[in-house]
Nucleic acid binder design. Structure first.
Lengths: 342, 342
DNA sequence: CTGTTAGCGCTTTCAG
DNA sequence: CTGAAAGCGCTAACAG
């Protein structure tokens, strides 16, 4: 049932090599034979074995993608960018979900290595020196998306400037007259999406000489439920000195916070403004729609693949660990109101 | 740099076969050699080439997954189920996004065949006779998820009974006192998620002797924006005889519809009730939260893989085209109110 | 328990 | 322009 290149060769009275040529380098084959071979390929319904080819040419045309969790909403948008430029370059992508586990990340790296991927895109978790050994053994280019390297191993990364993005978000709030601004932060152990954004928040307040208070900060793991609960805690702590705005480190948490507010009968944005981070598709689905700072996820995916392809062609490209900051921007919707000073 | 099984064999003074054995069937190897080989594997950092192995054993431990679009929200939840049971059985999944294009589906099938996947899960688009040729040539088991086969090629499918689910949803609405119930349907060309659910809607109305009116039906492509626009159209047509409830063929459209209502100053559920289909995570994120009929997506994914694995072990399992209906259920949230008859 | 041999399906020199 | 032969890295009989 399984039909191979040899079968085609026999049927067409040529050698396997010739069949291979009409598939891969038809310009090297005489017109007549080309037609003849192509016909028998069609007739027999031959479809070349990509595995065998991969083994032979030592190249799989595959890029490996490690993501922290496929159920995170931002995955979809990132993937779209990655897949698109991969496909345009005849590359496929092999997906690995690390499920937010450090251990699984290691597994993923080994997995992708075993599958001879030609390059790897690593997302979301920061790379520490712990990975030096495994990375150097990998022998394929690796680029980072939405994260960066803190190890000694040089890795190019593509992401927004999370510090600046958070800073800008909070500055935006301040420009709208807000002074008592709370934050629902990611965990500070998450050095990028957690700690860095929190620092940006603090810096923006400081810049405007607004005192920073731990009372105004709560933490969550980026999910809707986390945002909901964090908001509830924030509310409890705020009995006397009420916040007029809350900045969340993810859209999901922002929407969770809005829901919490709603349940307590607090109106957004009338009583309190809410701002998110990411600009996922869900921002338009909440009521009110969510004002947020946008990360161009699709574009980041595109950049990452493009760079990877460059590295794969040209060995020398890979050895820098610069960060390519892709630009963020504020997307105004309905969840923030202007406070007029009285 | 690339280190092979032969390198390990040489370094450990054994044959490649022995190294292969300690990796795959350690029980067949003497304790001493096993230890020795394992040590040199570790020392050299050897990691077996899955491609070569695949070629040799004629099995890749991969299942191919064809989805209509990765940015559809339901993808994530389905994938979680698939990935989980795949992983537990040492299978990986190779993803292919058909991007809602018939042509890309064909490409996907060829792609997966070329990559020698051991089985295929096909989602969402109905299978017609057009696929008979390609499917029979595939030579690997195929199972359907969230769709079914209308061709002559026998294919087992796992999905909810969309007709019954829609019927139940609308009956639920009726039980809450609604009589003038509109529908935002998928396109009728989509035989499963479109036409079948619409039929369920009509049947439920009929059952309660409620007249069916085209005035009360609008169509969309399952997206938020489609729901929004469909609702707007529905509103225009309804100037005289107002609807008290709307049933949408997807959660996204339902949420879009609610947004439209919100923008027009119509309250949900006070003025009009809304019900969705799917029970995605976003249902809890809208305000009001969305009452819906749940498809157990994760479970469907699990079932599909499990069945596929069974087919792969036992050739005989595959040849039936039965439909395994997984049970749906209504999830009550806030978007439907009870109408007390006056 | 371990080594030898052949071969998975394809590509790629190297001749002709 | 085409064919023969070797080999990609691994596994699977088959001997021993």
């Amino acid at each position: 049932m399984k039909i191979t290149i040899r079968d085609v060769a026999n049927a067409a009275n040529v050698s396997p090599a010739t069949v291979s040529r009409v598939i891969n380098t038809p310009e090297l084959v005489g017109e007549e034979t080309k037609v003849k071979v192509q016909e028998t390929i069609d007739k027999l319904g031959f479809s070349p074995n990509a595995i065998a080819r991969g083994l032979s040419v030592q190249k799989t045309n595959t890029i490996g993608l490690i993501v922290p969790g496929i159920s995170d909403f931002f995955f979809n948008e990132l993937y779209v960018g990655i897949e698109e430029v991969a496909r345009k370059n005849n590359m496929k992508v092999l997906l690995f979900d690390s499920q937010h586990s450090e251990y699984r990340v290691q597994e993923g790296l080994t997995f992708l290595k075993q599958h001879q991927v030609d390059g790897i895109i690593f997302t979301s978790r920061p790379i520490t020196s712990d990975y030096d050994a495994i990375l150097s053994r990998l022998d394929v280019p690796v680029v980072l998306a939405l994260t960066q390297s803190y190890g000694t191993y040089p890795l190019k990364s593509f992401r927004v400037d999370d510090y600046k993005a958070a800073y800008d978000a909070v500055s935006y709030l301040i420009s709208r007259g807000h002074q008592r601004i709370g934050m629902i932060s990611g965990p500070t152990t998450d050095i990028i999406a957690g700690k860095t954004r929190l620092t940006g928040y603090k810096a923006a307040l400081q810049q405007s000489s607004i005192p920073i208070s731990d009372e105004a900060i709560e933490y969550g793991e980026f999910r809707f439920e986390d945002g909901y609960r964090a908001m509830a805690r924030l509310l409890e702590k705020q009995s006397t000195n009420k916040l007029t705005a809350v900045f969340a480190a993810s859209d999901e948490m922002a929407i969770g916070a809005m829901r919490c507010l709603h349940d307590k009968g607090i109106r957004v944005p009338d009583d309190i403004s809410v701002m998110g981070f990411d600009d996922l598709r869900i921002c338009q689905m909440s009521t009110p729609t969510l004002t947020t700072v946008a990360q161009p996820l699709k574009q980041i995916g595109e950049f990452a693949v493009s760079h990877l392809l460059k590295c794969m062609e040209d060995e020398s490209t890979s050895i820098d660990n610069s960060i390519h900051y892709v630009s963020h921007h504020i997307v105004e919707r309905e969840s923030v109101r202007i406070i007029v000073p009285d």
